[in-house]
Design a protein around this nucleic acid. Structure first.
Length: 211
DNA sequence: TGCCTGATTGCCT
DNA sequence: GGCAATCAGGCAA
């Protein structure tokens, strides 16, 4: 499928994130993803949302990461090249979407935790029974459902495939806040969650904020 | 082979 | 605030 080099989303011109964007250090990529757009090009339309909350999962000595115990069939894509999508099923019913970063084999990724809907909102509403649009993508399982992302998209290439990341050509003003990651039993003390301060689309209020 | 747990969500009290 | 839903991976036996 022909993918345009640029697209207008939410009134702002965006360019598709190239391979090099994902190859940096995981924390840097995580912070740079804030303000970017996750877009799913489906057969009959698109859904997209601005990224407002992420978590970094580091390559070594990060007990909270799926890669901590080494590569397995489940987490194999997390060890793939930067710019690969790592999608997995959690709690037997929800999907989580990650962006693979760093070098091949290192096992680093950024979990996308919340989006502000910007395109295909009607499609999202049809998939998720919620009263408020801010609840469409407020949480990792919710955004996956809203954008119809499941394990079929695991291992796909964010640089060329149906899932993609788009970056505004002129940076938007936002303050990045930091907190500990959510839901972990190990590695929970590390300040590796980043989100747009004040955004109503962030999944929950956090403790230990640092602007 | 069997048991336990999880990067969550939504419903119930 | 508590807890069930639901299932694949990981580990013990």
């Amino acid at each position: 499928m022909a993918t345009p080099a640029r697209v207008r989303l939410d009134g702002v011109e965006h360019r598709r994130a190239p391979r090099a964007f994902f190859a940096g250090s995981t924390v840097d990529v995580a912070r740079a993803l804030l303000g970017g757009v996750l877009l799913h090009r489906e057969e009959d339309g698109i859904t997209a949302g601005r990224i407002v909350e992420v978590e970094a999962y580091l390559p070594r000595d990060d007990p909270g990461s799926h890669s901590f115990r080494g590569e397995t069939p489940r987490n194999a894509s997390m060890f793939g090249r930067a710019g690969t999508a790592y999608v997995y099923l959690i709690y037997g019913m929800h999907h989580c979407v990650n962006v693979v970063t760093g070098d091949v084999g290192s096992g680093e990724a950024v979990l996308l935790r919340a989006l502000e809907p910007v395109a295909g909102v009607e499609r999202m509403r049809a998939r998720r029974a919620v009263e408020r649009d801010r609840d469409l993508c407020r949480g990792p399982g919710r955004l996956a459902q809203a954008l119809a992302i499941d394990v079929a998209l695991d291992r796909t290439d964010l640089v060329r495939g149906p899932l993609s990341i788009w970056l505004p050509t002129s940076a938007r003003e936002h303050t990045i806040a930091t907190s500990t990651r959510i839901g972990l039993s190990k590695g929970a003390e590390l300040p590796l969650r980043f989100f747009v301060a004040g955004s109503p689309h962030v999944s929950r209020n956090a403790r230990g904020l640092r602007a």
